[in-house]
Design a protein around this nucleic acid. Structure first.
Lengths: 229, 229
DNA sequence: CAGGCGGGTTAGCGGGCGTTAACCTCGGAA
DNA sequence: TTCCGAGGTTAACGCCCGCTAACCCGCCTG
């Protein structure tokens, strides 16, 4: 825990001692190079926003979470809104791009639509299990964005949804489009449900959970087609 | 069940005006038994909280939504927190009580566990489709409550979840408890997904949506059991 | 060795919001 | 008729919070 991050980290020679808490050393050692201050701030802000809501978190708290205090954040971001914007745009972009990549890959490999759908499901599960905070934010704090940014995020989200809808319809041609769309939203809700019970070890281990979610999601789409009557 | 958009929505409360005029006018005789001012406030507050978040709504706005202005709310509630508390306790209680009632009824009728589970699913779907705002609030603003009230709501929610877990395990004995619990949460996420796309008529009509959700939820539980291997 | 600039610091302003205070006005008992 | 309480009103207070201002320091570059 207390291990020094090795980085020089300007010694806070100044009085105050605010730095104390900083820690949490989240970073989870992603191989990614140099998690800059900026990214560190984004990570902590995302966590706090997910925990207590955008309006429920003050800039001083965000600063404290990374070991600096309050207004220093403005050296990195134009304001609190800008942090949320960057978080939400980033999430939506990653989801959409990842989905497009997987769908294109599956199609190029000549796999059937059902396998493409499975690839989308697996990708979303990875995201939901690995970035719980972001998933939470993503469908909870959208309305706190200024108009133009909100439009941008919504567009990305819509593209992601429509990608799924197209694949679902290819895999289950009997399903009408509006029901396919509703089913996609429902499965998103299903897959995104994990963040809510993240607290307390109520979940099985990651692999078991992932396998469970995969089974549930696939079965849901299969059942979405109207009953054979 | 018309959504009753009515709500006279008083004009911008001109200054000065002698208070007198307002008087009893409001609440035009809704067939419902005396929707008191109190309930009217709760309804509007719930809608606003769901739309913009607890911290994103001011008391003046809530007042304006029911035709009175700001501090008049304090004749009916101890404060803003009290409104959220009453909303969340009410939702959680209704969910739990409705679940207990249906489960007891199904059991008394000698139905098999799978039929009991179906009854729970149908009940939850009705709630999710008819009280979207409340469903949204219920798993989104819990953390804005003061400590003690939050504990109370969480307890109600837990009882509801455990009721489902018991029924699921009776219906699917092969499913381990932790996975059953995770599946229950996942299905809640699935069923509660409808509020998110309520805006814009993206959904099929109510009956179609309800039938679709029912199919998805049942299939999910059936698929939750580990693969036969 | 100078100097600028990246990245910190504290102090403080301005606005918004929850809440309280003081006051008003009815409708319905006593 | 009087009075009182329920349910409004506006004014205002105090706090919190986002953001700006003014200042400071150490590293890297010329």
């Amino acid at each position: 825990m207390g291990s020094m991050p090795a980085q020089p980290r300007s010694a806070p020679a100044s009085t105050t001692s605010t730095a104390g808490t900083a820690g949490t050393a989240g970073t989870a050692g992603t191989a990614a190079p140099a998690s800059s201050r900026r990214e560190q701030i984004l990570r902590e802000a995302g966590r706090l926003f997910a925990e207590r809501g955008f309006h429920g978190v003050g800039v001083d708290e965000i600063g404290a979470a990374v070991g600096i205090s309050g207004p220093a954040l403005y050296r990195h971001f134009a304001g609190k809104d800008a942090m949320l914007t960057e978080l939400l745009v980033g999430i939506s972009s990653r989801l959409r791009d990842g989905g497009l990549r997987r769908a294109a890959g599956a199609e190029a490999a000549g796999l059937p639509p059902s396998a493409t759908l499975d690839a989308l499901i697996d990708g979303h599960i990875d995201f939901a299990l690995d970035d719980r905070d972001l998933i939470t934010l993503h469908d909870r704090e959208l309305d706190r964005l200024p108009r133009e940014e909100r439009r941008q995020v919504r567009q990305l989200q819509r593209q992601y949804v429509e990608l799924w809808v197209a694949v679902v319809r290819a895999a289950h041609p009997a399903l009408p489009e509006d029901q396919a769309r509703a089913a996609v939203h429902a499965v998103f809700g299903l897959l995104n449900s994990t963040p809510h019970l993240s607290r307390r070890a109520l979940l099985p281990d990651r692999d078991t959970t992932a396998a469970l979610l995969r089974r549930l999601a696939r079965a849901a789409f299969t059942a979405a087609a109207p009953p054979p009557e």
